[in-house]
Amino acid sequence: MADPYKPRAPIAPWDRRELPGLFDVEESARRIGNYTWAEMKLFEALGGWVATVPELDVKMRLGTHCYKHAWHAELWHKRLPELREMNPDRLTEPANDAMVQFVEAMTEPEAPELTIEKLVGVYRVFIPHFVAAYTFHKNNTSQITDAPTIRSLQFILQDEHDDWREGEMLLQSLIETPEEVDRATAHQARLQKLMLQAGGIAGPGSIGMNPTTSASATAGATNRNGGH
């Protein structure tokens, strides 16, 4: 056995995690507050829609997915006080007014004949934007200082991918005619435009393409270069 008192490298040679990250504590909390709000809106909508869809298999999936997004909201709500936001409800807010409009438009369909529209809003617009924002966050936050957020992001992304796939398969099984393809794409386009205005789940810069985060990105890159 190796000598237990022999000095060893504190960071193992196979551990390639980096210290610098794109977000400071305040920016992390802001984004996570937006995630909390958006996940809340999503689980409330899924729960509300259960009674409105006649398709039994869809009903059951909406109920199942409702819980998953509630759990995501809970994880984020619990993370906020760890990011110096002692009143997590204060930061639980939409990224901007356009995001509120997006959610209103997404939750508008109620009639039992509109299952396609309901699923398109969630699985072809909202959830893909969650996947994008979360992936950007996971890949750009500090792998060491922000490990708790990364751990949650990994669990949550797994759920988002699973739900995305299930929702997409339900849609493919429900869309049977060219007219229904048109219905789905028209609704998607309408919602996509509202989401474009919102800039993503955490507003402009949700996936890094805005002036504020570009500036931080440069700082991050500088840190990264000089980090080790």
Binding site: M40, E44, V50, K59, L62, G63, C66, V100
Partner: peptide, 26 residues
């Protein structure tokens, strides 16, 4: 089925205490 629908509606129908704008229609 109805228990599922009822629980879902309670997720949807009420605002969260202390969080402004989380009620029906904001």
């Amino acid at each position: 089925i109805q228990a599922l629908e009822g629980a879902g509606r309670t997720c949807h129908d009420f605002a969260v205490s202390n969080v402004p704008g989380t009620g029906p229609s904001g």
